[in-house]
Simulated assay, not measured.
Amino acid sequence: MAASDADAPLSFPVISMEKLETEERGAAMEVIRDACENWGFFELLNHGISHELMDEVERVTKAHYAECREHKFQEFAARTLEAGEKGADVKDVDWESTFFVRHLPASNLADLPDLDDHYRRVMKEFATEIEKLAERLLDILCENLGLEQGYLKKAFAGSGGLPTFGTKVSSYPPCPRPDLVDGLRAHTDAGGVILLFQDDQVSGLQLLKDGRWVDVPPMRHAVVVNVGDQLEVITNGRYKSVMHRVRTRADGNRMSIASFYNPGADAVIFPAKELVAGKEKKEGVKEEEVYPRFVFEDYMDLYVRHKFEAKEPRFQAMKSSAAVVVDAPIATA
């Protein structure tokens, strides 16, 4: 296993979005470029979502766990610890309490049990702000990549013109035996761009960089952004999705609210022609050697079976079936 890297002299990429409106824009864009290409993660400050809203999201989320989910989790925890201490392998278990909210193409917020009306209103408002931030980010990434404005949003749109957009709300309670089980096993994210509002008091999220695990630092009112597999494909490998995990801790209950701005189910995903051409010219890479073309839901069908494995065999499997995928229906100019 790779060694922990908490003390390594690495500067985790942090960007204040306010700088994008100043003479420091060029430097900020360079940090984003480097982060997407070499880290797969970066952290945003001054992103436009009000601190008051974020504080309320945190308050009601932690209260909801304590009132509605903690008892059930403790039952799971007792079974898992008992099995692990008796010698059973519990490495395929995640030490987390989770529920999912779907926003687009159709919301299921009203149908989720145990959420009071106030929590629903707060989550709806937060999702609206996160969606706007995700779309702003996609245009920033288009600029960084030299793609036309709106290219990535169009690439993510399914036949109904909408992405798949949802939120995973997680708690990672304290674990008395962190040596037995991870909070969340190492994986890359299948989708497009992921925006995370994480606990600023309890750490645990790590990414794999240059063979070592690096902490994603908790920062108050920050939004952590990471690159999903689909952005790696669309950018023809210029951006990289990276393995990441959540470590258990003996103290603290870590909150994680991860929103996934993903392609629509029937969106056809393929490398942007401008980036393929650029790579061919620069590196002599032949077109048949680049990332595959596939339908997003087909990739997801494979991903759910192989989430905690390397991404490269998934790409190769999609490449093997790429010949049956029709031309993509998005504009390129």
Rank of each mutant, 00 (worst) to 15 (best):
A2H: 08
A6S: 09
P9H: 02
L10Q: 10
P13S: 04
S16T: 10
E23K: 15
I32E: 02
N46P: 07
E52A: 15
V60F: 09
T61K: 03
H64Q: 08
E67W: 04
T80M: 15
E85M: 15
D89W: 02
K91M: 07
D92H: 07
D94W: 00
E96D: 08
R102H: 14
A106V: 13
P113Y: 01
R121C: 10
K124E: 13
E129F: 04
R136T: 05
L147S: 05
Q149L: 07
P163L: 01
G166S: 08
T167Q: 10
P178T: 06
P178R: 05
G191T: 03
D210C: 10
P217W: 02
H221Q: 10
V224Y: 11
L231M: 15
V242L: 14
G252S: 10
R254C: 13
S256R: 03
F270V: 12
A272G: 08
A277S: 13
E288Q: 05
V290Y: 00
Y291R: 00
F294H: 08
V295I: 13
E297K: 13
Y299P: 02
V304L: 11
K307L: 08
K307W: 06
E312K: 14
F315M: 09
M318I: 01
A322V: 00
A322E: 14
I330C: 09
